[in-house]
């Protein structure tokens, strides 16, 4: 996949709606493109949060490790960004992320991430939008659990 194709994929993602293609190209160019097979791990709970990932294709599982058990708490499809929470807050990873199928992702390292956020407000808005959507979903799940 060339850079142009990646930019097209990024443009199709709801998260990056309204961001200039040139900025997306910069994002794609400066990031690392990684291929994962099913079961390959992105990062483990407790690891240092050093990068965020944009899922270009495929999907990932979010797993919480409790002692010997692993509980799948969510599934994140293509078009989302994962790992940005740890980067933004500076805390270690709150969960383990593994690819649930063959997945292509863009890995944005921490300093690049902050540079992009600082320089291009559109990207910052995109990230915030994604976080907001996820928070709404989580709140909805929580209230459903409370009621049930």
């Amino acid at each position: 996949m060339t850079l142009d194709n990646e930019v097209k994929s990024l443009q199709a993602l709801p998260m990056f709606r309204g961001v200039e293609p040139a900025k997306l190209k910069l994002l794609a160019f400066a990031s690392e493109r990684l291929s994962y097979r099913a079961g390959d791990r992105f990062f483990r709970q407790g690891d240092v949060s050093d990068s965020a990932y944009v899922i270009l294709s495929g999907g990932v599982d979010v797993l919480l490790e409790t002692g010997a058990d692993r509980i799948r708490v969510a599934q994140i499809p293509r078009g989302s960004i994962v790992g940005e929470m740890g980067v933004l807050s500076g805390s270690p990873r709150s969960a383990t992320i593994e690819a649930s199928e063959a997945t292509e992702a863009l890995r944005i390292r921490k300093d690049l991430f902050f540079d992009l956020l600082n320089e291009f407000p559109q990207i910052a808005v995109a990230v915030m939008r994604d976080l907001a959507v996820r928070l709404e979903k989580t709140n909805a799940q929580l209230s459903a659990l409370r009621k049930g």
């Binding site: 850079l3 040139a22 900025k23 910069l26 300093d111 540079d115 992009l116 320089e119």
Partner: peptide
């Protein structure tokens, strides 16, 4: 490509 994607950034910028 470089000129296209780095447009708008001051040349001394970290990126």
């Amino acid at each position: 490509t470089m000129l296209e994607i780095f447009v708008g950034l001051p040349p001394g910028h970290a990126l």
